[in-house]
Amino acid sequence: MADSPEQPVPASEPHVVVTPSVLYVGTPAYLVATTNPDGTPNLAPASSYWALGQMLVLGLEAEGQTIANLLDRDELTLGFPSGDLWRAVARLAYVTGRDPVPPAKAARYRHTPDKFAEAGLTPQLSDLVAPPRVLECALQFEARVRRITPGLDRSYAMVEAEVLRVHADPAILKPGTDHIDPTRWDPLVYSFRHFFSRGTELGWLPSSPTAEEDPPIDAG
């Protein structure tokens, strides 16, 4: 006789219903560079991100200079900062390249024309796109927009971009390979408006190209 499925526990145990102000459960923070109409670079922090194959999906504010730039010029770079760069990312949290500052942002944001200088970061020439990379970021993507979809409430947009080239500091690679070694790479993580380093490694999947032994448990 087959085992009967376990019955669900009562809905009220052990959780409570909450209404958090944001839903940033824990995603990598990144810096996205685009080109302004006058040819200067814009740099903005973001954390809504996922990837599949060579495609990225980015969630970006609809009133930011980044979206305005991407609607006219489809090239961008992404720089993934390590944990030690969190202050540079935080310096960009409440500045905007929009001038004048949009009314919805006016209470907290101020305009600055040079976001790289504001963050204390260094622009680095890209190979295939116009926007610069962020020199201090150990992992950098050059990309081109393939589609921009307005969000349901129009306060954000979903940007689908194809990665054209990846740059990595050799220090984060498994020696002799093109594989990012997660034991050498410590990305900055953004969770409920707090910054974290990745933390202690807990395990890995059998498909890992960098692990040197079997997973510590049967991953199925």
Rank of each mutant, 00 (worst) to 15 (best):
R87T: 14
G97I: 10
S82V: 12
V95Q: 04
R98P: 09
G39Y: 07
R98K: 13
D99R: 09
Y24M: 13
A106R: 15
T77F: 05
Y94W: 08
A104L: 13
R73K: 14
A88G: 11
R108H: 15
L58G: 06
L78G: 15
N42G: 12
Y24D: 14
M55W: 03
D84E: 12
M55K: 13
P45V: 06
P103Q: 05
E61V: 07
P102R: 15
V32W: 01
L78M: 15
G64K: 02
G97F: 08
L52G: 06
L56P: 07
Y30M: 08
P103R: 09
D38T: 00
A46K: 03
P28K: 10
P81K: 04
Y30S: 08
A88L: 05
N69D: 09
D72R: 15
L85K: 04
A29M: 13
D99H: 14
G26V: 10
P45E: 02
A46E: 09
A106Q: 13
V57S: 05
N69V: 04
D38I: 00
P102D: 00
A90C: 06
T40M: 02
P28W: 05
P103C: 04
L85I: 04
L60N: 01
A46H: 12
T66S: 01
S48R: 06
L56I: 15
A33I: 02
L58W: 11
L76N: 11
Y109D: 11
D99W: 14
Y94I: 05
V89M: 03
M55C: 08
L23N: 15
L60V: 08
E75K: 00
I67W: 10
T96S: 13
P41Y: 04
R91P: 11
L60W: 12
F80G: 06
D72W: 12
A90V: 03
N36K: 05
Q65M: 06
T34I: 07
V57C: 09
Y109R: 14
Y30W: 10
R73D: 15
E61M: 09
R98I: 12
A90G: 06
W86S: 14
Q54Y: 13
L31H: 01
A106G: 11
G39E: 01
A46C: 10
D38G: 02
A93D: 12
R91H: 15
G83D: 07
L78Q: 13
E75I: 00
A51Q: 05
Y24A: 13
Y49G: 08
S47G: 03
S47E: 10
A68M: 06
N36E: 13
V101Q: 14
T77I: 06
W50D: 07
S82A: 11
T40K: 03
D74W: 11
V25Y: 11
L92C: 05
S48V: 07
A88H: 11
L92S: 11
G26P: 09
L43G: 02
L23F: 15
S47C: 05
G39C: 02
R73G: 08
T40D: 00
N42L: 00
T34C: 00
A107P: 15
E61P: 02
V32A: 15
L43N: 02
S48W: 13
P81H: 05
Y94M: 12
L43K: 02
W86H: 14
A107Y: 15
Q65S: 10
V95P: 12
G97T: 06
T77P: 13
D72E: 14
A33V: 00
A51T: 12
A93N: 06
G53S: 05
R98H: 09
T77M: 04
Y109V: 01
S82I: 02
L52S: 09
A93V: 11
L43I: 06
A104M: 11
T40H: 07
